[in-house]
Amino acid sequence: MNQELLDSIRQIIREEISGVKGDVSSLKGDVSSLKNDVSSLKGDVSSLKNDVAEMKPQLEENTQMLRTLLARTDNHGAMLEQLNIRVSRLEGNEKRYKKLNNDFYYHSHKVVVEIKEPVFEIDSNDHSDS
């Protein structure tokens, strides 16, 4: 009976091992596929690193240009504000000029000439008669 028991155990172990062998074989295929995927990902990451390395100087240059443009924009904004103030002053001056010109153009004086008897004042110091 021991032999039969051993044979049965061997048979069970063989069946289990053959299932495990199939699983191991399947796992080997999966691991091989994963290795290929990892290798492909490594290539992609390497390519991305190169792309980023190439883009980095351009990004720095663009950033510097943007900073310069922003500074110039601020400067131009201040200049535009000054121009607006000057234009406002000129517009005010023009309005005053037009008003003065209009007032001058329509300005009139009333000249009144009064005719009266002449009055001669005799100066006490004046002795021209003597």
Rank of each mutant, 00 (worst) to 15 (best):
N50R: 11
N50K: 09
N50Y: 11
N50V: 06
D51T: 03
D51M: 00
D51Q: 02
D51A: 06
V52L: 13
V52S: 06
V52K: 05
V52E: 03
V52G: 07
A53M: 03
E54T: 11
E54W: 10
E54N: 13
E54A: 15
M55F: 05
M55K: 10
M55P: 00
M55N: 03
K56N: 11
P57D: 13
P57H: 10
Q58A: 14
Q58R: 12
Q58F: 09
L59D: 04
L59T: 02
E60P: 02
E60F: 02
E60V: 08
E61M: 14
E61D: 09
T63V: 14
T63W: 10
Q64W: 06
Q64E: 15
Q64M: 13
L66P: 02
L66F: 04
L66W: 03
L66T: 08
L66S: 10
L66C: 09
R67D: 11
R67V: 04
R67Q: 10
R67F: 01
T68N: 04
T68P: 01
L69P: 04
L69H: 09
L69V: 09
L69M: 09
L70D: 05
L70W: 01
L70F: 02
A71E: 02
A71G: 05
A71N: 01
A71Q: 06
A71H: 02
A71W: 00
A71V: 07
R72K: 03
R72I: 06
R72N: 01
R72V: 11
T73N: 05
T73L: 15
D74G: 08
D74Y: 00
N75W: 11
N75H: 07
N75A: 15
N75V: 12
H76N: 00
H76F: 08
G77Q: 09
G77M: 07
G77T: 03
A78Y: 06
M79A: 14
L80E: 08
L80R: 07
L80K: 07
L80Y: 04
L80A: 04
L80N: 08
E81W: 05
E81S: 06
E81V: 00
E81K: 07
Q82T: 13
Q82V: 05
Q82K: 07
Q82W: 08
L83V: 06
L83I: 14
L83M: 10
L83W: 04
N84K: 01
I85Q: 12
I85W: 01
I85R: 12
I85A: 03
R86V: 08
R86C: 04
V87R: 09
V87A: 10
V87Q: 12
V87K: 13
V87I: 15
S88I: 02
S88R: 01
S88Q: 00
S88G: 00
R89G: 07
R89I: 10
R89F: 10
R89T: 10
